[in-house]
Amino acid sequence: MLHINCPFCGLRAQKEFAYGGDATVKRPEINKEVSKEEWDNFVYMRKSPRGKHIELWHHISGCRQWFKVQRDTATHEIFKTAKMSEEIV
């Protein structure tokens, strides 16, 4: 079970969180024309990297905030967590 550092609540067990997928995916802006390809990329296409991955987690049994986690998909090592307003570089 992972140990995740919620930027709002601190270190908590994985049980309290829900996984939310790739955090680098950006939704096309609302009310703007979007090409079919761009839209399909947004909806369906995800990278599945082995190694560092910036992803979303939702503290559903806690503060209910979505935030970013940089995790190694092979080793589960977590390098950093950050609020949505912060960047992970």
Partner: peptide
Amino acid sequence: AANVLSHLEYYLQIVWP
């Protein structure tokens, strides 16, 4: 019920803060 709340929070916190 639970999924919809998470869904709304997702858009408010991430997509349209």
